[in-house]
Amino acid sequence: MTARFAIGAKVSVRAAYPPGHVRTPFFVRGKTGVVTEIMGAYRNPEALAYGRDGEPALPLYRVQFQTAELWDDYGGGAADSTVVDIYENWLDPAEA
């Protein structure tokens, strides 16, 4: 598996809205986070969901977001974070 992003990389989640089965939650689309872990390669759920074999497998990342950057009105601690597992096809490099 060749992972496009390294641990520590800043990534943006695509602001995309395909009308079918995807595993990237709405609330992180268009948001920027940091790769904290690379979990290996997993078959593509967007193909598996429709009876295909899900190959080629996609690298799966844990991406950490500052919770206060996800919500305008976040009322919790400044250091609070949210970690989401995201497949590589949903990630772009973030501007530094």
């Binding site: 079918g20 089965h21 759920p45 598996l48 969901a49 429709y50 009876g51 899900g54």
Partner: peptide
């Protein structure tokens, strides 16, 4: 059945 098919069917 894959779990992803199950989820798609539920959605």
């Amino acid at each position: 059945i894959t779990v992803d098919e199950l989820r798609r069917g539920i959605e």
